[in-house]
Design a protein around this nucleic acid. Structure first.
Lengths: 158, 158
DNA sequence: CTCGTATAGTTGCATAATGCAACTGGAAAA
DNA sequence: TTTTCCAGTTGCATTATGCAACTATACGAG
């Protein structure tokens, strides 16, 4: 099997590989983080992230192609172009939050000065956890892969 | 500001950038996914992922350096080396699950044949969501950045 | 003991991705 | 009408990745 076939196989079989096909390149996550933080314009992304202009250009185009961002020329000032998250893009939030929490805990060490809170209670959001259908938190060894056809047959089994 | 300084700044300020410093390179996520799926040996990772041997070698070394994997020579067969997830590595699980769920929903389209279930109930795990301290699910626009010092002062404010 | 094979890499070279600085083109602002 | 702003593009340098062949060590069979 060639490498291309191998990757195609991986992508079709595994959501992780499929996701990385869209957001796995360098800078993609950070550009999306910027978009979540309300950055809209090329120059904003460029100066905030310090990314090379040609790469930024390429990544924005790619993210637009993949339907993560919408490219919207500003009718009031035709020099300006705004990039906005689509629903597909917004749905990546859990990934970014989980990544951020992990990074703060295990890499940067200290939670940064800025804290993400629920707008209403103004209390920090909960740590991201894997949960069972009923909300119980699950650790790695409480998980198992099973075939789709066997789902939920524990009690229903003949 | 040079690019290096810029990145350093980013990493120190943002958990996402910090996390990507460790797991942001190509293949890192897929190698860790393999580790979660009980792959242990060089040849297993290589044949499962179809990754180039030199890159795999480099990534495994990097993940070991960063404390994601432990490299354990097999005492019974000294040719063999096993790579095992550390706690730091295992704690990345929410990120991988969130990424997988997103990829299945928005990229590969169809959930794959294999389903992750809670070992006990044998029902599929819940979708990953961002939650408030009390467990309420939160969407992007219910989130706000505030300064650490102001946390939870809504009712306590003088 | 020695020969074949398994395991975990390494090496050299080719291709692709990223980074940098300078430049372009169209539109607003002075 | 000249200057500045915005969103890119271009050419060239550096770095990362991919590929195939090779190495080194250790088992295992005979």
């Amino acid at each position: 099997m060639t490498r291309a076939e191998h990757l195609k196989q991986l992508f079709s079989e595994c959501g992780i590989a499929a996701a990385l096909e869209v957001v796995g390149e360098r800078w993609s996550f950070l550009i999306l983080r910027g978009a979540f933080n309300r950055l809209q314009h090329f120059e904003e992304f460029q100066s905030t992230l310090g990314i090379a202009r040609n790469i930024l250009s390429n990544r924005l185009a790619r993210l637009v192609e993949h339907g993560m961002l919408r490219r919207e020329p500003d009718p009031a000032d035709r020099r300006k172009v705004a990039y906005h998250l689509t629903e597909k893009g917004r749905e990546l939030l859990p990934v970014l939050i989980a990544l951020r929490q992990w990074g703060e805990r295990w890499v940067s060490g200290v939670p940064s000065n800025a804290v993400l809170v629920d707008r209403y209670s103004r209390r920090p959001i909960a740590p991201m956890t894997v949960q069972a259908a009923d909300g119980r938190p699950l650790s790695m060894d409480e998980l198992e892969w099973i075939d789709r056809k066997e789902v939920g047959l524990k009690d229903a089994a003949a």
